[in-house]
Nucleic acid binder design. Structure first.
Length: 580
DNA sequence: ACCTTAAGCGCG
DNA sequence: AAAGCGCGCTTAAGGT
């Protein structure tokens, strides 16, 4: 390591032959000489620098570099994830000089290609040179340095660099959180899961047998439909049987069945519910996904176009609420669960500077606040109206109520209406911090163009209008969902650092071994769009709750300085997640 | 026999 | 009573 004062960034990359290079870089782009080490020494070096001056580590892809460090027991404070930052900058409309960055096509990797396989198998950087599949970004030192330069130039060219920098930092912090969530795992009580399954389905059947309670519901349904051999698992056959029995439905979906009165309906809905539970989260799910008391999904930051996370493996973001009680703290530990009340409308109110909407949300429940303005009668109506405004509904109660919101909350409604107008004509919209929507696909544009030609058929024109409206609903929702995702990232980024400062508890208070020190101090265990769960030693639970609240407050002030909109949380401390 | 698509339902 | 946004996953059906 060269002597002298440290620079704030440390770029990491491979040099071939199993060596890693580290280069310190400062704000002017000045670099120190590279430090070269064997790959096996990286973890120790990173740990030393974290203790010494904690630089912001710059690397190609957190999912490639961080798991090995976590396995070695090392956590870092901050990073720049070049892959994620590239993806934001490449399409962001606020970047004024994106060309050099866009030309670096090697860095364009869609997240779905990265979701497939979990990383961090315990090997510290494979040395066989097998890296470099076409679905990964470059991991060499020189490439990282060059890309980092391009990214800084692009980011500095932004109309409001401050906001964009916030997004890039949040995005990178999210990548660290995702890797740490995987390393820590969700504390999952397989016995409780089994108990819930047996309660709903009956005892675990052997060898492909149908669980008793499912079989009972099926038999009841077949009786009521007077068809002893009907397969309930085939929608077309089930649909025909329903219609034969005089139930006039166009599909076998639950919402349509519920509208009809017939002895077959209740057992069929019961069957579908149980069948779904068994197929998606039955006993095989436990066998496949729960090991040593932990469920470890792979989180995919920015896996959704709006910037929301996706997940891969086990359906982490779709765990039914029914099974939430199986998310259970280790003995002597507690779960601190928090979700934001009405995050998206609050984000909209803040973005739009809508004082009336901010005021409606001031008393914890925004929907109740809307009822108090007199614009609608009930909380349910308020919720339906707001969701209609965010999603762009065109029919039903929701569409009927939205115009009233337009009178009461003109600023908020103008923002989403404007986003829809832009989308309908093929334009691009951008979130509060600077993530832009993707351009329309070529087929969409071609259809719009040809529908405007004089010889276009009526059917063609109608199709084009429907497609335009559909895209309008997408862009309408994009600005809100995307900004809400930014708020949530800022929340977690701040929370993660607060929790990392907690004192580890004594060894006899340790939880089951999991991740780098996560068995000794409060850590994030679950994230779902507007909700976090922290696993904490019992004596740290109150402090963790305080940290969660403080982080939410900080996120609000960071994104929307001076805004009167607040972001209240529903917070619970208990041994298990799920409704108290 | 294999791969892709659509239906349906879980989550926010 | 049941639409308007974004997803992942399992199953059956359809295409090759």
């Amino acid at each position: 390591m060269t002597a002298g004062s440290r620079r704030p960034w440390c770029v990491v990359g491979r040099l071939g032959e199993g060596r890693i290079g580290l280069v310190d870089v400062d704000g002017s782009g000045a670099r120190d000489e590279p430090v070269v080490l064997p790959a096996a020494d990286l973890a120790a070096r990173v740990a030393a620098r974290e203790a010494e001056d904690a630089p912001r580590w710059v690397w190609s892809d957190t999912a490639e570099w961080y798991p090995a460090l976590l396995d070695a027991g090392i956590r870092i404070g901050r990073c720049v994830d070049l892959r994620l930052v590239h993806a934001v900058l490449r399409t962001s409309q606020v970047v004024r000089e994106p060309e050099p960055l866009r030309a670096a096509a090697a860095w364009d990797v869609s997240p779905e290609h990265l979701a497939a396989e979990p990383r961090g198998d315990g090997t510290l950087f494979s040395l066989d040179g097998s890296a470099g599949s076409p679905t990964s970004v470059p991991d060499g030192l020189e490439e990282a340095l060059a890309e980092f330069d391009r990214q800084r130039a692009a980011a500095e060219s932004a109309a409001e660099p401050g906001r964009l920098r916030l997004l890039l930092a949040a995005e990178s912090a999210g990548a660290l959180v995702a890797a740490e969530l995987h390393a820590a795992g969700m504390p999952w009580d397989a016995a409780e899961h089994d108990r819930l399954l047996r309660e709903a389905l009956g005892p675990r059947p052997h060898g492909g047998q149908v669980p008793v309670k499912m079989a009972e519901a099926a038999a009841e349904t077949r009786d009521a439909l007077d068809d002893r051999t009907l397969s309930l698992d085939s929608p077309p056959r089930l649909l025909r049987a329903l219609r034969r029995a005089g139930i006039d439905v166009a599909s076998t979906s639950r919402w349509e069945l519920e509208a009809h009165e017939h002895p077959a309906i209740a057992p069929l809905l019961r069957y579908k519910k149980l069948s779904r539970l068994l197929a998606a989260n039955g006993w095989w799910w436990i066998d496949e996904w729960v090991h040593d008391g932990r469920y470890r999904p792979v989180y995919v930051p920015a896996g959704v176009v709006t910037g929301r996370w996706a997940s891969s493996g086990g359906g982490a973001l779709q765990i039914p609420r029914q099974l939430r009680p199986a998310l259970r703290a280790d003995p002597g530990w507690l779960l601190v669960s928090a979700d934001v009340a009405q995050l998206e409308p609050r984000v909209l109110a803040a973005m739009a500077g809508d004082a009336a909407m901010a005021a409606a949300g001031a008393a914890t429940d925004l929907y109740a606040g809307i009822v108090e303005t007199g614009v609608v009668e009930t909380r349910t109506e308020a919720k339906v109206a707001v969701l209609g405004a965010l999603y762009g509904s065109t029919t039903g109660d929701s569409a009927r109520l939205v115009p009233r919101l337009r009178r009461t909350f003109p600023d908020a409604m103008r923002l989403v209406d404007r986003a829809a107008e832009v989308g309908e004509v093929g334009g691009t919209v951008t979130t509060w911090l600077g993530r832009s929507s993707p351009p329309p696909d070529p087929g969409w544009s071609a259809a719009q163009t040809s529908a405007h030609l004089p010889d276009a058929s009526t059917a063609e024109q109608e199709r084009a209008v429907r497609a335009a409206r559909s895209r309008g609903r997408f862009t309408r929702n994009f600005v809100v969902q995307g900004t809400a995702a930014e708020w949530a990232l800022a929340w977690m980024a701040d929370l993660r650092l607060r929790l990392a400062r907690f004192e580890p508890v004594a060894a006899e208070r340790a939880a089951r071994a999991s991740g780098p020190g996560f068995d000794r101090q409060a850590h994030l265990a679950f994230f779902l769009h507007d909700e976090v769960i922290v696993h904490a030693p019992a004596e740290q639970a109150d402090a963790a709750a305080t940290a969660i609240l403080a982080a939410a407050d900080a996120a609000g002030r960071l994104l929307f300085p001076g805004s009167t909109v607040d972001f209240p949380l529903d917070l619970h401390i208990a041994e298990h997640a799920g409704k108290a």
